[in-house]
Design a protein around this nucleic acid. Structure first.
Lengths: 229, 229
DNA sequence: CCAAAAGTGTTCTCGATACACCCATGT
DNA sequence: ACATGGGTGTATCGAGAACACTTTTGG
């Protein structure tokens, strides 16, 4: 019932009975940005929405379990998956262990096929535990946006700098200075400009960019967004 | 066997059999600093040392389980406990889920009673999984040292600035500039000076400090230590 | 008077911020 | 010609890093 070697020496005082074993529950915060809103994938629950969830099988690594959970919620493959945190929450009369993941999906303008429902991340109504997990996911995403190239996973193949800035703004919830934003994002070296421009309305066409194939996903951009409106 | 409500709606395709349930194993990285070395608490294992570990019981929150594990390794109460990461590792023919914690204990000069063994963190020989966990713990501790007052949990009640600097240096593994270090740590406002000084040898006595009772544990110090020797 | 650690200030560089106007296009 | 979003440059400020000498004590 337990695997051998290592953990016998300091095993807890009593033997583990079968139903003393803890329950592990995976929860996925699957985010995307569309029309200037940060959206989260949710499924209908008893009374409220709930995050996509599931119980991992033994014999399967956690990340794979998370990935297959996502494949049940959307037909698009996620672009990015990162473990968030493991918390224990009271559920009925037991404590269950919730392992939470952050996943990102790029939009190509429209929404990814929603087998799940997409709800605005700032207003969706979830259980207490799910709300905590969602909030933490947003904190992490905001932080990483500042010093990594994680935005890559939220953008389509090519985009204008204004579109990139709009995505940043929907995630951080602030408006940023156009000139400073461009300087930073260009200076970071994570982008390359494409030969084409996009004509889009009765105004000057916009240069298109994409993320460089070799962009370092851990590359530092610059760590602070403070100070703007 | 499973608790009701929430997770039925997206339950995995097949029903969960009893022994499909995953095993969860807690591991604690318990660190301290003594005589200029970063030490980790370990227990004798089959061939190598191993991190204190144990299986959490259902019905007990994870953090409590971690705390009681620590109480089995040392008589001192830990000063600080923080969850690190949850990873799945292959063990025999199953994947087990390892939830890792970072704990800190202050030294008062000598070592805390070692029911566990204290080994230098940079040379101790552990299993592959334990090594990964230890390395990650050190990365986290180093990072947090830069922008939080986490050092508090490694220091005795009162100390000199040189002692504090020495602790920082043993953790980050770099030597720091004395003047810059002092300026930063003073400017951060996390310390207060005591009326006493410590006479210590044939040289000028050193001012004693302690952490302010109301120091904000999340207070920013300053995020980088680069550039020194 | 010598050894040993404590303590102290200034200069420089660089990244972050604030801020306002001209450009290309469609109607 | 005008409305619309695209695109650009400069001045200021503050944080971090580099760097060397004086002070106080005990022996």
């Amino acid at each position: 019932m337990k695997q051998a070697s290592e953990q016998l020496s300091t095993a807890p005082k009593e033997t583990v009975r079968e139903d003393d074993r803890v329950c592990v529950d995976l929860r996925i915060v699957l985010l995307t940005v569309a029309n200037g809103q940060l959206l989260v994938a949710v499924l209908p629950g008893a009374e409220r929405w709930q995050l996509p969830r599931g119980i991992p099988f033994a014999g399967v690594p956690l990340d794979s379990a998370a990935r297959s959970l996502i494949r049940e919620s959307t037909e698009l493959h996620e672009q990015y998956l990162e473990q968030l945190y493991t918390l224990s929450v009271r559920d009925a009369d037991r404590w269950i262990i919730v392992v939470s993941y952050l996943a990102l999906i790029a939009t190509d303008g429209g929404l990814p096929e929603p087998m799940a429902n997409w709800q605005p991340a700032d207003t969706v109504s979830l259980s207490e535990a799910d709300t905590k997990v969602l909030e933490y996911a947003i904190v992490r995403l905001r932080a990483k946006l500042g010093y990594t190239t994680i935005a890559y996973h939220l953008m389509p193949e090519s985009f204008t700098l204004s579109e990139l800035q709009a995505s940043y703004e929907s995630v951080v919830g602030l408006s940023l200075d156009k000139r400073n934003f461009r300087r930073r994002v260009i200076a970071s070296g994570m982008l390359e400009s494409l030969p084409e421009k996009r004509r889009d309305g009765s105004h000057r066409p916009a240069q298109l960019y994409r993320f460089r194939a070799d962009h370092d996903p851990a590359a530092f951009l610059t760590p602070s967004w403070a100070g703007d409106a």
